[in-house]
Design a binder for these strands. Structure first.
Length: 548
DNA sequence: AACCGCTAATTCCG
DNA sequence: CGGAATTAGCGGTT
């Protein structure tokens, strides 16, 4: 059989990492990357832990000006509402006529959609308040129509004198009706938000063309021009873009460059099992060059060298700039402007270790009930990765080892596969299978967090990895696909928020793979509480933040 | 190592 | 809705 979807029962999950070479975009010429005065800074969404705290700058979106007629009210995502001006309708409603028939007619009116819901992080809370009202008006218009069409008899009858019991019943019906209206409204909001979070194909195409080219250049350099990194394996595409979870813009790419290591000795550096001290044992490895006798592999030194090589490899690539080295960041971050948009590419050096996972992981990855024992076993046969990353002060010392010389364990390859194969039933979200709303829920929560971070800088330490982890735990506690039915998006999303609030209130969110690591330990009690409250508020008020 | 062919996921478009 | 287009990913062939 061919094709990439492996059946659930696939054997040898490991194997052919190094065979795939993608050449599809290689031949195309990369256009020169136009420099434009207007500056565009991506939202700090999708940030992984390493990026926590990165300030999100306010952007100017030059395209707003380009399309005055459409974007006057909507402001935020001009390219969506812009050119084709054909924002898609609520898919669910269309697919599921029986559920939401009442709202369909109103929604199919084209003018509703473009102005509706503008979910851009930058504009929220900074400027353009007008869209809110406009959308609200539209929505309420929809529901006025709907109610008028639906329940005239009951309301009219009520006025012609009835028993008290009947009246009571009536008001009960009314409140139920109002509840339904609210639910439908919520659904509309979420769907419109999701619509606006979609990555446009043109953007994706342009961005990936450049990124793939960059990757190729770097890989080639590492393999043929370096000594220490020439064993680098086929790059690993991780992060939200490659998980199909990127929202709003294709402006963040994560690529890991794995260096194989055979026999190593790893010792936990921290009590939570997230950081390790690594030493190469006997056997040849170019990286041994960095390792002094009796000492461990110095992550920071290797990273520094790697960084130089990356810089060297892209020196002829037009329009690339390199971020100043950030403390505690496992990556070399390249920035490149594509069609006036800034794209960042995180290049992560990592060691790939093909042996059993450290003991700290033994209580993690509790996916048996959700995905099955077999899948779990397959995952645990995969290698694990060690990325050069330290936290806090790199000069902190423990047993004579500097924090900056230890390695953080990473399972992003497994995260990616889980996200791709996320159903308890194999056919979940396949072409002819049942669709679930897991990914949509995750996208919405990511978006919500990035909007809240925009609003309140005290939330800077929260990142999308918190969201992702919450989501993975949620999948483990609601394992059945029917608990994530596409039609139940609003309930599922709300429940996911409740989960998140609980983690925040208790300030306890365990790493999905390493339960001993509390991902919220770096966040203050106060900020956790306040974020939980803030999310609760949005949830209870029907997500006004999505409507601005 | 380069290329091809297939499939999946997603967006676009009529 | 259904098909085209596009990126991504896998495996096989040359």
């Amino acid at each position: 059989m061919s094709g990439r979807r492996k059946p659930r029962t696939a054997k040898s999950p490991e194997a052919k990492r190094s065979t795939g070479t993608r050449t599809n975009t290689e031949e195309k010429q990369t256009k020169t990357f136009e420099e434009q005065a207007a500056n565009f800074n991506p939202p700090a969404s999708g940030a992984r832990p390493k990026k926590c705290g990165a300030p999100a700058k306010v952007k100017l979106d030059e395209e707003i000006k380009k399309d005055p007629k459409k974007t006057t009210a909507s402001g935020a995502r001009p390219k969506k509402c812009g050119a084709p001006a054909k924002v898609k309708l609520d898919e669910e409603i269309k697919k599921d006529p029986k559920k939401t028939t009442t709202a369909t007619t109103a929604q199919t009116k084209p003018n509703v959609n473009c102005t509706a819901s503008d979910a851009n992080p930058e504009t929220c809370g900074t400027k353009t308040k007008s869209p809110v009202d406009e959308k609200d008006n539209i929505i309420s218009t929809i529901y006025k129509d709907k109610c008028a069409a639906e329940q005239p008899e009951s309301t009219l009858k009520g006025k012609k004198g009835m028993t008290q019991l009947q009246m009571k019943q009536l008001s009960h019906d009314d409140s139920k009706k109002a509840d339904d209206v609210k639910k439908t409204e919520l659904r509309t909001t979420l769907n419109a938000t999701l619509e606006n979070l979609k990555i446009r194909m043109k953007e994706k195409s342009k961005a990936s063309e450049v990124i793939n080219k960059l990757e190729k250049v770097i890989l080639k350099h590492l393999r043929s021009e370096t000594i220490w990194f020439r064993q680098v394996e086929e790059p690993l595409h991780t992060g939200s873009y490659y998980e199909n979870l990127k929202i709003s813009n294709p402006d963040e790419f994560d690529i890991m460059f794995p260096i194989p290591v055979q026999r190593i000795d790893i010792q936990p550096f921290t009590e939570d099992g997230a950081f390790y001290v690594v030493s190469l044992k006997r056997g040849y490895n170019p990286l041994k060059r960095f390792q002094e006798d009796g000492k461990p592999l110095p992550a920071s030194e290797i990273l520094q060298d790697f960084r130089q090589e990356v810089i060297e490899s892209i020196k002829d690539f037009p329009g690339v700039s390199i971020d100043r080295k950030k403390r505690g960041c496992p990556a070399v971050t390249l920035n490149i402007k594509v069609e006036s948009r800034d794209i960042s590419l995180d290049i992560v050096l990592c060691l790939v270790v093909q042996s059993s996972w450290p003991d700290f992981t033994s209580d993690g990855l509790k996916i048996e009930a959700w995905l099955g024992r077999k899948i779990k076993k397959d995952y645990k046969f995969k290698p694990y990765y060690l990325v050069s990353k330290y936290e806090g002060n790199g000069n902190d010392e423990r047993d004579g080892i500097l924090a900056k010389d230890c390695w953080r364990i990473s399972f992003s390859h497994v995260e990616k596969e889980i996200l791709k194969n996320h159903g308890s039933v194999k056919t979940c979200c396949e072409k002819d299978g049942t669709h679930c709303c897991r990914k949509d829920c995750l996208k919405l929560l990511k978006h919500l967090l990035s909007l809240l971070k925009e609003q309140d800088k005290s939330f800077a330490k929260f990142c999308s990895y918190h969201v992702k982890t919450t989501f993975l735990h949620a999948c483990c506690s609601r394992t059945n696909d029917s608990q994530w039915a596409a039609a139940d998006l609003t309930q599922c999303f709300e429940q996911l928020l409740i989960d998140f609030e609980k983690h925040l209130e208790s300030r306890q969110l365990n790493n999905f793979f390493i339960p001993a690591q509390n991902l919220l330990s770096g966040c203050s009690q106060k900020s956790c509480k306040s974020l939980a409250l803030r999310i609760k508020k949005e949830r209870e008020e029907g997500f006004p933040i999505f409507k601005c």
